[in-house]
Design a protein around this nucleic acid. Sequence first.
DNA 1: GTTTAATTTAAACACTTGTTTAATTTTATT
DNA 2: AATAAAATTAAACAAGTGTTTAAATTAAAC
Lengths: 226, 226
Amino acid sequence: MFKLNKCLILHSIRNTTMSNIELNDKKIQILNVAEKLFSDKGFEGTSIRDISKEAKINIAMVSYYFGSKEKLLEALILHKTVDLKLQLENLLQENLEPLEKVKKLIEIYVSRICLNKGIYRVLHFELNNKKREKSLNAFTELKKGNLKAVESIIKQGQSQGVFRKDINIQLITPTIIGTFFHFHMNRHFFEELFDLKTEEMFNNYITNDLTKHIQQTIKALLVYEN
Amino acid sequence: MFKLNKCLILHSIRNTTMSNIELNDKKIQILNVAEKLFSDKGFEGTSIRDISKEAKINIAMVSYYFGSKEKLLEALILHKTVDLKLQLENLLQENLEPLEKVKKLIEIYVSRICLNKGIYRVLHFELNNKKREKSLNAFTELKKGNLKAVESIIKQGQSQGVFRKDINIQLITPTIIGTFFHFHMNRHFFEELFDLKTEEMFNNYITNDLTKHIQQTIKALLVYEN
DNA sequence: GTTTAATTTAAACACTTGTTTAATTTTATT
DNA sequence: AATAAAATTAAACAAGTGTTTAAATTAAAC
C-alpha cells in the first residue's frame, strides 16, 4: 500500500492533466471495463478476475492500482459523474425563459445519463446496499447540487408568474430521472413494445420520444391551470 | 431431484389450499426471508447460508424445497406478484370518471408496490441481468397486462373528450412507477431532505405527498391545454 | 409396533471469491 | 551502464460459494 501511494503521487506529478490526481491509461482502461461489467452483471456479480480478463491485465493490478474492489467502485463513481454538475451550473447562467430552461435541463439529464448509462445503472443497483454506503457519499453531494439547480430554475419561473406555486419542487427530479430509468431498466420490454430493433433505434427513441414525453409532462405540471 | 418432485406432489395433495401446488409453511418462511435479504443485499450478494441462518433452517433445505437458488427466485417472483394484476382488473370494471380511475390506478400502483417493496426492488435489480432472463418471464406478462389496463382507462377518457390525445400512453406507466422507484431507491437522500425520521413517517410521505405529486403530474399531463 | 416415506442434518464436494506475496520484468534516474 | 523504482506476473492464501451426499431424525401409513 505504501508503494501504491507513492505511485499515485508520482503519477500526479508526471501527468500534468486536469483531474484529481489519479489518471493513467491503464487505470482508465480498468475503469471502463469495470463500468461495463458492473453495469451488466452488478457489483457483486462481477469478479476481479472477470475484470482483469476483459481488460487483459493481471488480477493483482486492480488491488495494486485501486487498493480494493470497493475502492475501484469509488474511483469509478468519481470519475464518471463530474461533468453533469458542470453542465447544470452552466445552464443556470444562461439567459433563457424558465420553460426553455426546464426543457434544456431535462435534455441535459437524459443525454448525460444516457451517455454514462453504465455507471448510473451501477449507482441505481448499489444505492440501497448498506455495504456500499461509503462509496456513494460523493453521489449524494452530486444530487444535492442538482436539486439546488432545479430549485433555482423553478423558483425563477414562479416569481415570473409562469409556473404554478403549488408544486412539490423536490419531487420533480424523481419524475424526470425516474421516468428515464424505469424505461431503461425495462429496456427489453420497451424494445419489444416499440419494435426498436437496433441500439441506434433505441437511443433515438430516448432522445426523441422519451425526452419529449418527459418535457411535456413536466411542462404540464408546471403551467396547467386546474 | 426425484425425491423433490414426489415431495411436491404429495404436498399439493395434502394441502388442499388455493395456490399453484407449492404452499407450505416452511417454504413461505424461506420465501419471506429470501425476499428480505435479496432486497437488502441483492441476489448475488445473498448466500444460501445467509438465508438458512436467518430462516433458522439447514442449508440443504433450499435446494431440497426449490431445487436451486435460481428457482427460489422464480418462486419468489411468482408468489409475490399475483395480486396486483387482480386489483387492476377490478378497477377496470368500476364505474368511475376517467380522472378518478387514473387517480385510483396510481394509488393502487403505489400502495401495492410499497407493500411488496422487497420483491419489486429485487425485480428492479435483476431486470437487466442476462443471467436472470428466464426467471423474469412471468414479470413481463404482468407488465403487458398492466399496460393494457392503463391503455383502456386513458382511451376511455379520450373518447369522452376529457383527456388530451397527443400523449404517449405507453410512457405513462414509466412516469408513475419510475417516480415512485426513484424516490425509493434514493430513500436515504429523501429521508434526510424531508426529515423523515421513522419508517412510519417515510411511508406516510409516500402515501400522501408522493402519491399526490404523481397524481397531480399525470392529471396535468392528461388534461392541460397548451 | 413395524415399516415406509418425508424431513432434517452435518459434512464434504468442487469451485470461485478478494487479496497478498515474493519473484520477475520493465521503466526511469543517475 | 548501474542503480533504483514501478509495473507486472504466477502462485498461494484463507474464506465463502451453491450443491450433493448419506446418515439420522421425525412423521405417516399400515
